[in-house]
Simulated scan of single mutants.
Amino acid sequence: MTTATPQAVSRATSNVKIENTNKKVSYDQFIFFGDSITQIDGNPERGFSWRSALQYDYMRRIDIVNRGFSGYNTSNALEVLPIFFPSPQEARVRLVTIFFGANDASLPNTTGQHVPLEHFKLNLHSLLSHPCILAHPNVKILLITPPPIDEWQFDSWDEPGKSARKAVIARAYADAVVEVGSESGIAVVDLWSACMKEVGWDGEEPLPGDHGAEKSGLSKLLFDGLHLGGEGYRVLYQEMKKVVAKEYPELVPAKIPVVLEPFFPEWW
């Protein structure tokens, strides 16, 4: 790689002209739509960030927009989607992630976030077919399953949250996301299974995270039993890259041109 002093770069760029200076450029978007697990990603206290890592991968190619809403379930998602989602005239959306279920899976008569399993699946189908999303030509959608939960970490929570979620129920909602993806022909990032693989689960009972089982390695992925920590987001990042490369290869970074070509291509 050629190196140069800032002064030399400044002198060089002063002689470079950008053509079509009257034309305003815009960046296509990936929109990450979800609940608090999406919203809080990027907290520097948690370490690795799924969105930040992808933003680096797609630097100068795609704007990645975080639209995470803490506390929301899929019913809330359907209400808010038309309020924030850009029209094709405002931005070109290339990819949408739909990452809900952690709140839907809370038990009835606890936090008020519960959505029955079949209703949850219907809500997901409605999100996948929403006209605000489908208005964007050739838009791709990724479903992401909720991660496992670790009931052991809820011991320090206050009620009603302390008793609101069960490991076996989280698994059922993750399975439902996979089912909806199969029914709709939509790619799925199976985060639940990836996390279980990460902690070495062999598929036999008891289920890691269940309070009736021994403590598992889920605490290294979930900082409070529900939300991903840095290592959990790292698993999500790795799994999403695999799924995009397999299902939507046209969206891997190398296939998307930079918005503005560099002044010095040999440095790029």
Results as ranks from 00 to 15, higher is better:
M240F: 08
S163H: 15
P206I: 15
L54V: 08
R67G: 06
I98T: 00
V93H: 09
T145I: 04
D210H: 05
E205G: 09
I83F: 06
Q89Y: 08
N73A: 11
R165N: 08
V80P: 05
D158I: 11
D210E: 03
N43V: 09
W157P: 01
G181M: 04
H130D: 11
P108V: 07
E214T: 11
S156Q: 14
L117E: 12
E231D: 11
W201K: 07
R61Y: 14
F100C: 03
G42L: 10
A213C: 03
D224M: 02
I256W: 05
A8I: 00
D210I: 01
P86T: 14
P6F: 09
A167W: 04
V93C: 04
C132A: 10
V93R: 07
L142A: 05
E159S: 09
A164T: 11
D224S: 02
S126D: 14
F84P: 11
S10K: 01
T13D: 14
V258C: 04
H136I: 08
V199M: 12
H130L: 07
Y72E: 12
E205Q: 10
E151N: 06
S129Q: 10
E261Q: 12
S75E: 13
L127T: 02
V199E: 08
P257W: 10
I149A: 00
K17H: 07
A77N: 09
N138F: 11
P147V: 11
S156K: 07
E214Y: 10
L191R: 01
Y233T: 03
A170I: 00
